[in-house]
Write a protein that binds this DNA or RNA. Structure first.
Lengths: 345, 345
DNA sequence: CTGTTAGCGCGTTCAG
DNA sequence: CTGAACGCGCTAACAG
């Protein structure tokens, strides 16, 4: 285990003091050019790099920002990370990614760990379990410690910080309205349990579209999917009797892709018998048959915006910084799970 | 910006020395229980946490391991990360994820940054551009600096370190043989450019299966896909004349899913006319129509194994540590893009 | 039982 | 032009 080269070692090598070496390497005018040249050449040869830890400790900042996401296997989150990463690199920041795995406890642990001097600021999307417990003290503590925090996607109203959200309600509205325009009148909603905030937002957009088009909402057409048990079984109820939907809006890609499978198993064709729209940035949508019409979330843009806000706060000296909430537009990506129709408005 | 509580502040508060506080908090028997109690209560109340940076600097280790992956939007890599993360957390390690975006330069930068005292060890899958340039000096330098390194999936033969690879050749062999058993005789291969090592391994498995079954290899049935231009167009050549394949083995999920689309556009049915097998851990495979038969890579297992090896090396005091290469078994996940047939061997 | 000292690696006064 | 001293926050060896 060879040891890394330090100022100290270089100093010893040249028989000068540590601070002389430090200055020489920073090209200080205080040092004779002859000494500077020799030291610099030596340092270059041995690939001298100041130790980050020491620098961080001294400067009380790390040029690193932490990101906590609930799940990394979700395509949306990877898009967000891509956005964060890109901007971070341009700005000379490193990114440390942590996973909460939707667990409250792990979220708290991650937060504690990051808060401990490891990062200059934190970007987080709240774990489902945390939303369920409705306990956000760990975030408040973070803020009290003066660590800049940005929430994205799954945000918490009660917490006072910068936020980035997709226009969930607007996107859901767009999607539902599209189905209505295409002639659907029995539109089902596949959503998450109530405690998931984005699910609720999307539900509201769905309801708003129904309302504005004078279509009565029907509880029987709303399925709150529990991820812990078989999705297919839960979706089957839609086709087992009662009113069969002619349009389906799903709050995510998996539900949308799955419901197409289930519908087909029950003998229904998409989009002829039933039209389907999902909500996602995911990859799956392009490869299903038919390919899925979706509401695009622009994850990368969200990530960039989140980092922008974070750096903004980090750089700000303001005692009373004004927190913002940035709403990222969503829009419809028409594919083949909806009918192509011409309108005459 | 409130400031974090430190030993120094507690010491001042109680009018004792810093080391007394330090000991008190560690419940040292050297300190009177009365003082200990008061200090501990105070520390608890103010949520005292030792500053990680200071600890790291002092201990010359960070309990953090770095992971460099080429792309985070690939499902395989997220699975690997999940595996790494899980074990890391059990062992009390944090994980820092960096993206090279398949770029040589960014890989070098990431490596430099991580090597600088930030992590205790590094797990990496080599960027395509690096494989193309065939320049691995940055890895050697890392090793010379005594920083434990594990390579996974896309590994480099010339570098002497721990490695974890999927049994690419074996998996490809399995897949190809399955197609042969199902009656295919004109089996196409969709692969990557030559410099991508895993692509080559898989190609070898494919060729071996052909050879062992006395099927002549046919260059016209091998497509080396260039990711930078339209995949669909490149795959179309298979169906535009000459020998139309009756079986296709693709070295990844995207190629496999795309070729099914293209085949359908040309009027061929999967699996009736053409059977397809992909190579991946991906999500898409389950949602295509028909769902894709694939070679499963067990990304999570690979991640776990990689971390295991890394910790092994970190903990090892051996001057002459023996590097290992761990081969992770692959196996066939039969879905609907291949025919269900019964054999009588 | 408590305090002093030193050191992890670095940059920055301030003296010389 | 050069070096000694200090501080970032913490622990451990050593004194008292």
């Amino acid at each position: 285990m060879k040891h890394k080269i330090t100022l100290k070692k270089i100093a010893k090598e040249f028989g000068v003091s540590i601070s002389t070496v430090s200055k020489a390497l920073k090209n200080s005018h205080e040092i004779s050019s002859e000494v500077k040249e020799r030291i610099q050449a030596f340092a270059k040869y041995y690939h001298y790099k100041p130790n980050s830890l020491a620098l961080n400790l001294r400067n009380q900042k790390t040029k690193t920002i932490g990101v906590i996401i609930p799940e990394i296997v979700h395509h949306f989150f990877t898009k967000v990370i891509t956005g964060i990463e890109k901007l971070a690199n341009e700005k000379g920041y490193n990114v440390m990614i942590c996973l909460s795995n939707e667990s409250y406890e792990k979220e708290v642990l991650n937060l504690e760990m990051l808060a401990n001097g490891v990062v200059d600021g934190i970007i987080v999307s709240v774990a489902k379990e945390t939303e369920e417990k409705d306990d956000y003290r760990h975030f408040n503590e973070l803020i009290n410690n003066g660590i800049p925090l940005v929430m994205f996607d799954r945000v918490v109203d009660q917490i006072n910080c910068n936020k980035v959200i997709a226009d969930d309600k607007g996107g859901a509205f767009l999607a539902t309205e599209q189905l209505i325009k295409n002639g659907c009148s029995h539109i089902a909603l596949l959503t998450t349990p109530d405690y998931v905030t984005v699910g609720n937002e999307r539900k509201e957009g769905y309801l708003k579209a129904l309302y504005e088009n004078n279509i009565p909402a029907n509880q029987d057409l709303v399925v709150k999917v529990n991820d812990k048990i078989s999705i297919e079984e839960q979706l089957s109820v839609l086709f087992e009797g009662g009113i069969i939907p002619d349009g389906i809006f799903a709050v995510n890609e998996i539900y949308a892709a799955t419901v197409m499978k289930v519908a087909r198993n029950f003998g229904y064709n998409v989009p002829e018998d039933i039209e389907v729209i999902g909500f996602t940035d995911g990859l799956i949508s392009e490869f299903t048959t038919p390919s899925l019409t979706t509401v695009a979330q622009h994850g990368r843009t969200m990530g960039q915006k989140a980092l922008e806000l974070l750096l903004d706060e980090i750089d700000s000296q303001d005692t009373h910084y004004q927190y913002k909430t940035s709403l990222i537009q969503t829009d419809l990506k028409i594919r083949n799970s909806t009918k192509k129709v011409e309108f005459h408005n």
